[in-house]
Design a protein around this nucleic acid. Structure first.
Lengths: 260, 260
DNA sequence: CCAAAAGTGTTGGAATTACACCCATGG
DNA sequence: CCATGGGTGTAATTCCAACACTTTTGG
């Protein structure tokens, strides 16, 4: 959405195309420099950070809407996307908004119409995505003039109740890692043991014994060692590994029970 | 909602009181006769079974809406209620409805107004509740003339995509039992080992060794043996047990990791 | 040759599983 | 007295956690 006409039309007539009262917030996780990161956008007017989000088209399945929204932002296809909560309790999710709030706080010209669909109480469905940091090419638009990846430990204050949304996404991810393999969507196709090791440490927020960790993944048949190495510094080169797609998919479907 | 005027008002003006496009479906689990059951209502017109549900008031927090809806049906306070999914993908959750569908299929007189708020596409937030079967006193109303508890293994065809809703609730419950204690809300205050044992077997859908099971619960400090027994038949009387509220609450909050 | 990071096995303890017999009760 | 279901302990095994030294590499 980038031309002035498009925006005016969206503000005035958006409820013809989109369902009112409901939006999608997406928490896009990437992994870089041994850190779990999420993608934030800088919003005009408000001049602060917020999650990528959007609305659901009138006839669009919910999961397709989430897919479209993240796809448009990141350029990625075949996303790993997961719904994790619907937010409708916080004060931000109860209030209607006003012309004044939009103009003063967000610097948006929404006309004088107090009945605008954007003012109505809007609940939000949270989705998280796990993406390969290096494949993402972020697209900003006229509402969002900048973007940045942030360490999950250093998220700035966000719009509305979005800090809570991020917390819930993280909590879901941490719980899920006990029942499902994670990594296929966060790492490049070939990766080293230290990389995936540190990914798990980052997500779980605690140290994991390297020997036990690799034994476990190999024992589960989730990864296999390749005959290649990657030279990365003045020290021993690590072997590359790959996920065993079949075992991985099985584990995703059937679930695994384990501690790390 | 029981008088004709109330209903007419709800149909005509409901969108003044409730958010359109969004509803709540509740899966109410109870436990009776060694069986995990859910509460279904028989709907007029459609003449089939469906989940208890309702709408969210304009200014009402989402979780309060779920609470209100289940409370009104069951008469229970202090519910254990948990949001588990929002449904917006199935064909039933995409379509708008029509006067014809309402009159013919559901036997409801909604007037001739094709713009009625009830016709609009409606996504549904799924909540499940765990309740003490014996404390529930179900209230039907003019839309729902009968109710019945059904074994989770024998759920009849339900309205819309509600069979999928039930499946998802069950799947969530089964996953959750690995991380949280369950039973406090499903069993009476005092219960026997065979009762809680069979509850867990029912939820997990598999047999659990009785000796190991009780050792585990006692070792975790979740239950304690009382000095009473319950006489129930021509055989040895089982001891009664009680949950240790504090340990139970801690386990709920912090989570536990275990297999059964 | 040295600093930095990768790689690799073993062991003790804890937790989990498997398993069978006696006991209490009401009819 | 008998049929029914409740209660209890131990041994074998598996799984998990803890732990330290050697290898490789580029500079």
């Amino acid at each position: 959405m980038n031309s002035q006409e498009e925006i005016a039309d969206f503000i005035r007539n958006g409820s013809q195309y989109y369902l009112p009262h409901l939006s999608i917030d997406s928490v896009i996780f990437g992994y870089h420099n041994q850190q779990l990161k999420i993608l934030l956008l800088k919003w005009i007017g408000y001049n602060g950070w917020g999650l990528p989000g959007g609305f659901i088209q009138r006839r669009e399945p919910l999961s397709e809407a989430a897919n479209r929204i993240v796809q448009e932002r990141t350029g990625l296809e075949d996303l790993f996307l997961q719904q994790f909560h619907i937010f409708g309790d916080s004060p931000y999710r109860l209030q209607e908004r006003s012309v004044r709030e939009f103009t003063e706080k967000y610097g948006l010209d929404v006309g004088a119409d107090e009945d605008n669909w954007l003012f109505e109480r809007t609940l939000s469905v949270g989705y998280f995505a796990l993406v390969d940091y290096f494949r993402v090419s972020v697209r900003t638009d006229i509402f969002t003039y900048d973007y940045q990846w942030w360490d999950v430990g250093e998220i700035p204050p966000l719009l509305f109740d979005q800090n809570e949304v991020v917390e819930k996404a993280l909590a879901t991810l941490r719980l899920q890692i006990y029942h499902q393999p994670i990594g296929y969507n966060l790492l490049p196709e070939k990766f080293t043991l230290p990389e995936i090791h540190s990914l798990y440490e980052t997500i779980l927020g605690k140290e994991l014994d390297g020997r036990n960790f690799s034994k476990k993944l190999v024992a589960l048949g989730l990864i296999k060692k390749l005959d290649e190495r990657r030279a990365i510094g003045p020290h021993r080169s690590p072997y590359l590994y790959q996920f065993e797609k079949d075992a991985y998919e099985d584990a995703l479907k059937q679930g695994i029970v384990h501690t790390y």
